[in-house]
Every structure is written in C-alpha cells, then in structure tokens.
C-alpha cells in the first residue's frame, strides 16, 4: 500500500507445543518483525492487534490442538503499516486455505492539521502533519449488505472489526473518517477478489 510493503507467511494447521495447546480450537500465534533490529514494543502491540482481530473470523474450532502461525515481516515502512500488515495477512490466510468466516480489508486515514481534510493511505511525511490518525478494518459481509447504500452510522460500525485512533478529533470527524474508510475498504475487498481470481485462473487453464 503506497510506499509500504509487508511480507506475510502463514504456517498451519501444524503441531503445537503442549504448553500452548488448546483442546477445543487452534492456537493462533502472530509474530511481527521489523526490518532491522529486534522486535520493539510497537511490534508487540501490532502482533496483539492482528491476533485479536483475526481470532473471531478464523474458524479455529475446525482444527483443534494445532497451531496457526502468522509471521508479519515489515519490508518497507512509509506510513499505514498496520493496514498493510492486515491486508497482507488476510491474503496469506486465503492462500494457505485456513478456514475463515469472512475476509477483511483495512484502510488508514488521517485528518490534516492545517487543512482539516481527510487523507487516505498517508505516507510517513503526511503522518507527521496529522492532527489525528485512524485505522479501520471492515469485513466483507458488510460490503455485501451495504450494496443498497444503507449508510446508517450504527450499521456501519457494526461491521467494523478493528478501529484504532490517535490524536484529537471530534465525534463527527470520527464518523466521517469511518465512512470514507469504509468506501476505500470496498476497493481493498475488490482487489483481494481479483487477486484470488487471477491465481485460480492460472491453476485452471489446463483443464479447459
């Protein structure tokens, strides 16, 4: 996304350490790694954000007593790294064939300190000038339900899987951001769909 890129790998369902074993569902482990150096507090927070968002949409009950390990490696950080990590993770999960309830799409936006405008997918430079930063994650159930343009605020928020905001902002600003990000997330969902379709077409071309 923009100038940022993240490499994500998914291993699983695989053997789990007895210590981490859960009898009724799979253990989800997320490891976030920075480009250089040791994982910092920020990386640990990112790990927890991703794991807590994914756990409700992963059907971990289908693979009890196993481990699903997700490794998120930052390759290049130029703003909205958390959104990039979310989108990379969901693509990796789809490719690995892990059962999911729905897919997600993540978008970051900022409110510019000078112009008070909402900016999508900010770069590091733009982030520095932001009054507030918002990260949203939407699932694809909502994109199906909202085709009839029911942009009710409450319904909109019911489909948010994750939201993280920093800085100072008003309530109206927050809802405006979520509306803008929701629209942008549709593009992310569309991209995921075309990516999967392209890969499947390659696989099936021999059989026609």
């Amino acid at each position: 996304m923009g100038g940022s890129s993240v490499l994500c790998s998914v291993v699983g369902p695989t053997e789990v350490k007895i210590r981490d074993e859960q009898l009724d569902k799979a253990t989800v482990e997320v490891v976030a790694r920075p480009l250089v150096g040791l994982p910092s507090v920020k990386d640990k927070a990112r790990e927890q954000n991703i794991r807590e968002t994914l756990e409700p949409i992963l059907l971990s009950g289908l693979h009890p007593r196993t481990l699903i390990q997700i490794v998120v490696q930052t390759m290049k950080d130029d703003g909205c790294i958390l959104s990039t990590a979310f989108n990379a993770t969901i693509l990796a999960l789809l490719d690995a064939g892990i059962p999911l309830k729905s897919i997600l799409g993540s978008v970051t936006c900022i409110i510019d300190a000078q112009s008070n405008e909402i900016l999508l997918d900010p770069t590091t430079e733009e982030l520095a000038q932001a009054k507030s930063t918002h990260v949203f994650v939407f699932d694809n159930k909502s994109s199906i339900a909202n085709n009839e343009d029911i942009m009710d605020q409450e319904e909109l928020l019911a489909n948010v899987l994750f939201s993280d905001s920093t800085g100072s902002f008003s309530e109206e600003e927050y809802f405006e951001c979520s509306r803008v990000c929701f629209k942008a997330a549709q593009a992310v969902h569309g991209f995921i769909r075309t990516a999967v379709e392209k890969k499947l077409q390659k696989e099936y071309q021999q059989q026609e």
Binding site: L100, K101, D139, I144, I192, V196, L200
Partner: peptide
C-alpha cells in the same frame, strides 16, 4: 448475497471467497 449470484449466472468457474 449479490456477489455469488452474479458469479453463478455468468459462465466459467464460480469463484467464492470466505464469507460469500
């Protein structure tokens, strides 16, 4: 629900994603 019905009516393989 719309996405899947569109896929079914068009010819070719019907591709589904989690949540469809």
């Amino acid at each position: 629900m719309t996405s899947i019905t569109e896929d079914l009516s068009s010819s070719g393989p019907k591709i589904v994603l989690p949540g469809d």
